[in-house]
Design a protein around this nucleic acid. Structure first.
Length: 265
DNA sequence: TACATATGATCAT
DNA sequence: TGATCCTATGTAA
């Protein structure tokens, strides 16, 4: 589920319903109960995302910090509300709308300076700061590690996940194992521009889909949901949509990365 | 019933 | 590099 587009989309859609309202905050599962009680009946003044982090800011100055991790999911509903899962870590309700959160990596209550401590180390967010390309380039220029690894480091750019890193490197024609600092300026600029573009598209649609019309197969009936609309992700052994070379897969730091050995030399 | 797997990140060694 | 945390789902046994 969660790359940067998901948190930004969640912040936009949930913020529309929650900001300005006094909300009920509880933790059906129990592990966030003490914190929930401290903001229960409080007024939400802002819901925002930075990279993969999402914050609900209350008039009291306290903020709920959520990071979905690999398993976290939001479910939102209008009244009448469904029965909450007993695993729900967090449940936020107005009279007419609710946010239901399961499986987050992080769900904690923070003071303002603690929020700053979370945001401080993060690299530019392509959705929050589309003009952050210079900062992105600066951070890459000192890294000897493979670009495929650097893209997942949230201090390089915040919001890129495992789907997008494979797709981005295909779109700019770069081999994932190229040392980050060896990329030329023009390539890094194209990489940033694609990151902004793809995350913006994902924010609007709720899904990372990178394939342009002329590369789109006539029938996608035999494609899995993971493969659909993507050049490389989960397509190992399948023909490249541009050159028909079978897509390769390898591990970088125990996570799969897919690429085309012809288009990305 | 058990196991594998997943768009993440941290901490210990 | 490996262990660990978090949840849901699909497939194997």
């Amino acid at each position: 589920m969660p790359e940067g587009h998901i948190t930004h989309r969640a912040a936009r859609l949930q913020g529309r319903e929650l900001v300005g309202h006094h909300v009920t905050v509880v933790s059906p599962q129990g592990r966030f109960s003490d914190s929930a009680a401290r903001v229960d009946e409080g007024k939400v003044i802002r819901v925002y995302a930075y990279g993969k982090h999402l914050f609900y800011e209350f008039a009291s100055g306290l903020s709920i910090h959520v990071h979905l991790g690999l398993f976290g999911k939001f479910r939102t509903s209008s009244a009448p509300f469904p029965e909450p899962s007993p695993n729900a870590r967090l449940l936020i309700q107005t009279d007419t709308y609710e946010v239901h959160l399961t499986g987050p990596n992080t769900c904690e209550l923070l003071e303002t300076d603690e929020v700053d401590g979370i945001l401080g180390p993060l690299g530019p967010d392509p959705l929050g700061e589309p003009t952050g390309g210079d900062g992105f380039a600066r951070r890459l220029s000192t890294r000897k590690i493979p670009i495929g690894r650097a893209l997942l480091e949230q201090k390089v750019a915040s919001g890129i996940g495992n789907v997008l890193r494979s797709e981005l490197l295909f779109l700019v024609g770069v081999n994932p194992f190229t040392p980050a600092q060896e990329l030329d300026t023009e390539t890094v600029e194209r990489l940033w521009a694609q990151t902004v573009r793809q995350l913006q598209f994902g924010e609007r649609t709720g899904r990372i889909a990178t394939v342009i019309a002329e590369d789109q197969p006539a029938s996608a009936a035999d494609e899995t949901p993971e493969q659909r609309g993507r050049y490389t992700y989960y397509r190992d052994g399948e023909p490249c949509r541009r050159c028909a070379t079978p897509i390769s897969v390898n591990k970088i730091d125990s996570r799969n990365i897919w690429w085309c050995s012809y288009c990305q030399q």
